[in-house]
Design a protein around this nucleic acid. Sequence first.
DNA 1: CATGAATGAGCCTTCATTCAT
DNA 2: TATGAATGAAGGCTCATTCAT
Lengths: 204, 204, 204, 204
Amino acid sequence: MRDAVNSKNSILNAAEKLFAEKGFDGARVSEIADEAGVNKALIYYYFDSKEDIMDSLFSILINQVINIMRNNILDLDLDNEDDFDIFLDILINHIENKRDILRVAMTESMKKTGKKSIIIKIAEMLISSEIETMRQIVLEKGIDFPGDEREILVAEFFTGVLPVVNYILFRDEFIENFNMTEREYKEYFLKAFKETHFAYHLRR
Amino acid sequence: MRDAVNSKNSILNAAEKLFAEKGFDGARVSEIADEAGVNKALIYYYFDSKEDIMDSLFSILINQVINIMRNNILDLDLDNEDDFDIFLDILINHIENKRDILRVAMTESMKKTGKKSIIIKIAEMLISSEIETMRQIVLEKGIDFPGDEREILVAEFFTGVLPVVNYILFRDEFIENFNMTEREYKEYFLKAFKETHFAYHLRR
Amino acid sequence: MRDAVNSKNSILNAAEKLFAEKGFDGARVSEIADEAGVNKALIYYYFDSKEDIMDSLFSILINQVINIMRNNILDLDLDNEDDFDIFLDILINHIENKRDILRVAMTESMKKTGKKSIIIKIAEMLISSEIETMRQIVLEKGIDFPGDEREILVAEFFTGVLPVVNYILFRDEFIENFNMTEREYKEYFLKAFKETHFAYHLRR
Amino acid sequence: MRDAVNSKNSILNAAEKLFAEKGFDGARVSEIADEAGVNKALIYYYFDSKEDIMDSLFSILINQVINIMRNNILDLDLDNEDDFDIFLDILINHIENKRDILRVAMTESMKKTGKKSIIIKIAEMLISSEIETMRQIVLEKGIDFPGDEREILVAEFFTGVLPVVNYILFRDEFIENFNMTEREYKEYFLKAFKETHFAYHLRR
DNA sequence: CATGAATGAGCCTTCATTCAT
DNA sequence: TATGAATGAAGGCTCATTCAT
């Protein structure tokens, strides 16, 4: 191979896949090496430790989230149904693409390790970004700034972001166990999501 | 403390705690023994394997869910705000009490192991119960049976149950990182939850 | 085997032998296990780490040195040739018996690790003991206390103890390479040692 | 700095330092490369293996010993106190300069590897040289050839050379642990050494 | 000469599990 | 029931060494 970039990426991809399947502790470094098609020792040439691989993956994820946010998605007017649909589509698409690493992020974030979890880090970014957007809207349109920014964070996080993430992560199992098609699964979820989260935006 | 029943319970309690903290793979049988104050080998007198401990915990959880469901919680009329509040209170309380094991259930269920996850099992129970309840209402009141039972499952699961579970599981970290009090955290969540999930019930 | 004391001792003996042959870093834990006839993991049941094995060996050595010192060897009058001969005999015998671990102690002590080496620890014990003995003699006989106790330490250590230790440690190689018998080797060394170290005691 | 000769020398110097600090097995090839400021692979351009580096260092040491011996140091009359002082000074100086590599030579020689140790090789050189010198003296002065040349070797080695070597190797630790100045340490040792080894020469 | 990338072998340590009492 | 001792099977990580450029 003799190709540094490819080797390192192979490792990252393999790790992402295996961490998603078995969890961080359940995945074996040797499996990652096999999956990546590289020598096990090479992993330690590029990374300090197994944990360092996960940190790198999380770091990449965070950068991607930042890029997504920069792409003015948040400029959409979520109180408008068409915009909300577009936003939802984009959001689901992004989450869909980051499925595996998000699965890892969720499971690892739920452990009580004492360290700041990656999900919280992402939440921080989202809120600070959303608040910035809001301030601009407030300035431009002269409307009231909504009560407490932390209130928005909590609402968006638990009734907006997390349901979508969970919808993606549990899809395969849901479809298999409750015999529905992927189309039905999506239809049911979107209907419910719009009746709840969109309704919430409307009312504000 | 040193009799049979207590030994077994000590082990289960210790395992619940450690699985919640470190995940199933991260927790060590010897740690469980230490935390439980029993000899490591004794664990294998009561349980076949480490996995058997978790299965036992999940089995207990499922029985508790069944008991909760039997206690006619589902007889409440969720389209009535007072009833919804009562229901929400009870639900949150129950989830609160099962915090640790639910944390384990969530993290383990998110892995792509191929086996039916415990979260799916619980979802199955909830839907079959809810549908049974509905059938009775349909019979008694002569009203229409709602479109598709699976639609209800999806809606209830992703916009009802999971947000509440996540609200409990992420509490400590949220409070710590976004400097809010426990009271504020609860207030913000309940407000959002009612504006979404309760609104959803109303509209049906 | 199922015999704790024997297992632990087997490990210690095997480690002593292998550390002496190959040095601490050169010896393999698996070799130690094989040599001891125990499972490799059992080593970690009794010891925290490979280093802990060596520390235990050194700790045992130090205790033995203490015991040797307690056995009033130091009460001998080293300025009397017969006593000196007896003393020398005892000293050589002891060192002979602790050959292997002393070999390890010497090689490890020569590394510049920054930690206090075991050879220095033993030297400390010897000097404090010798000084105590001297104080008593001074008190009993009313003679002058020799100049500086540290002077004695240096002299005894480099012209007394270390030569004897080295004489033991280099024996096999000397005999093999300079074709002498064990008897000749001993004779030559004792002659030289008495002409130097004993002469030194005499002159004081 | 970056030319061939310097690269090789950097490697040798770095290896000497690290072998002295950590022993041959404890030192890492990558550390040597870092310390030398060269690429790790370059080491294998100049040397066949890690062991080859040490062999080169020992080879250099032996050549230096030969040079030292050629400088007619051994022509001094060690039975004359002034000459003995001069000799001692020169000897200590030389050993001082070869400190690090001598430390390695000592520790590696003490292992029971079966191979002829470098310390023994040096001893061989010393004795053959000394004996040659003696034969000349015997021829020139018509005096008796001393009993057994191996007797001389043993005496010189264990009561002459090794004490001086050890004095150098243990200096730093001695000074630090027995709170003496470097000057005191030297004074005490020289006094003892002369009272023993010089006295021995006198008596012959 | 020099170097970034790669690797086979193996090392220390751990862990779930079992055995004997 | 309970436990100290024991073990097979890895697991993460390291290291001397080699390769390709």
